[in-house]
Amino acid sequence: MSNLFPLSVEGALTRRRGRVLVGPVDLKLDPTGTTMVIGPNGAGKTSLLRMLHGIARLGAGRINWACEEHEAQRHQAFVFQQPVMMRRTVQDNLAYPLRLSGVKRAEARDRAAVWAGKVGLGAMLTRQATVLSGGERQKLAIARALIRDPELLFLDEPCSSLDGRATREIEEILHGVAEVGTRIIMSTHDMGQARRLGTEVAFLLHGKVHEFAAADTFFPAPATAQARAFLNGDIVE
């Protein structure tokens, strides 16, 4: 169980050049579970995750962690929609977060090799990360995020370039880390995935949290017409 939660978000919003990207958002997140952030393109999913993670500056409102903000920051990891590949080998990419927190080189590289194996990159340890395919990059980014055992894991459409099998494998890993208490907040366009992994759902529309509910009430019976339309694959106004 995570020490960062419960998390309460009050009127938080981020702006870019005067335009509100997302917010104001009010949320209460419990210590356990997997929150699925869904919504149409441009709804503000990425912006919401970045704001919660603290890499997009708060324009207003508050984000209250259960612990010191600095402490909270140290126990989070983020998988970006476009994974950032450091210009090093796969192994060194994976080892990097460990090296940042002072793990010795040899141990960091060993643990990197283990994680590479878990996400199916075991045969590519010495390859330059910059030449990986889109799917391989996503796997690398996920392993790199998990390698420091974060208490809170943000994933921004982590499986968008993965094939069916790789998606299942990643979902299994995520399931595993959720089971041991890692709090997950992720966005996805894959409603099957949202159902499989999510315990609660935040449906975003036009930069606002339009509907926030437990997964087993949201999916069978969304409360709003817009969410219903979105789940049906219709145009959402």
Binding site: H53, I55, Q73, R74, Q76, A77, F78, F80, V84, M86, R87, R88, Y96, P97, L100
Partner: peptide, 28 residues
């Protein structure tokens, strides 16, 4: 240029100022 690539990642990983500079020098 390299920093605009790395910015989000290194900030997300809580790399200190010195660690950021070292990563840039090494990878660049």
């Amino acid at each position: 240029e390299l920093w605009s690539d790395y910015h989000d990642l290194l900030i997300s990983m809580n790399a200190s100022q010195g660690q950021r500079i070292r990563a840039l020098l090494w990878d660049g």
